[in-house]
């Protein structure tokens, strides 16, 4: 996590040297964004704090952890394909789940399908691209997400 502070620090310093006014504007944008996302963020934290109390850690690591990685992968990618959730909420949520022992590859399947596959948005997509292309695109993206998740699993040593 430390490199995040370092990168941010360097970026801010460089930006201030280059243009003080623009940097001020960047901070304004940042503040606006935080304020805008805050209610949804608090709601997410409230829900997660309750749900993770009701669902014991053992159950999470049993169903979403190393013991059943493939079922978890499939489940996560299906959920990710169906639901709509802004990434600004999804990634922090995944960060919490990570500390609870959920595998990187499961979270990868979830976030990648969340971003690329849209079953709920498919009616809109169909109006622009037609049914056939919509199906092809979503199916391809689903397959890509699975590949990404598996390679993530290999890279983090979760598969072998």
């Amino acid at each position: 996590m430390n490199y995040l502070y370092i990168v941010t620090g360097i970026a801010v310093i460089v930006s201030v040297i280059a243009n003080r006014e623009k940097t001020r504007k960047a901070f304004e944008i940042a503040r606006e964004r935080v304020v805008k996302i805050a209610p949804a963020f608090v709601a997410m934290l409230v829900l997660v704090s309750v749900v993770l109390f009701l669902v014991p850690d053992e159950a999470i690591s049993c169903y979403l952890g190393a013991d059943s990685s493939f079922q978890a992968l499939l489940l996560a990618s299906l959920i990710g394909s169906i639901i709509l959730m802004p990434g600004f909420i999804a990634f922090p949520l995944c960060g919490i789940l990570l500390t609870k022992g959920v595998l990187y590859m499961v979270l990868s399947a979830f976030t990648t399908t969340l971003m690329t596959v849209g079953i709920l948005t498919s009616p809109i997509e169909k109006e622009y691209f037609g049914a056939r292309v919509t199906i092809i695109r979503n199916a391809t993206c689903f397959a890509i997400a699975i590949v990404v998740a598996l390679i993530t699993g290999i890279a983090f040593g979760e598969l072998f």
Partner: peptide, 24 residues
């Protein structure tokens, strides 16, 4: 709730400052 919020707050400001810089 407390520990999750703390984890989030450690990261959130930096992430949004970077996003702000990017947009500018």
């Amino acid at each position: 709730f407390g520990s999750f919020s703390l984890d989030m707050l450690k990261v959130l400001p930096c992430a949004f400052i970077l996003i702000g810089l990017f947009e500018v």
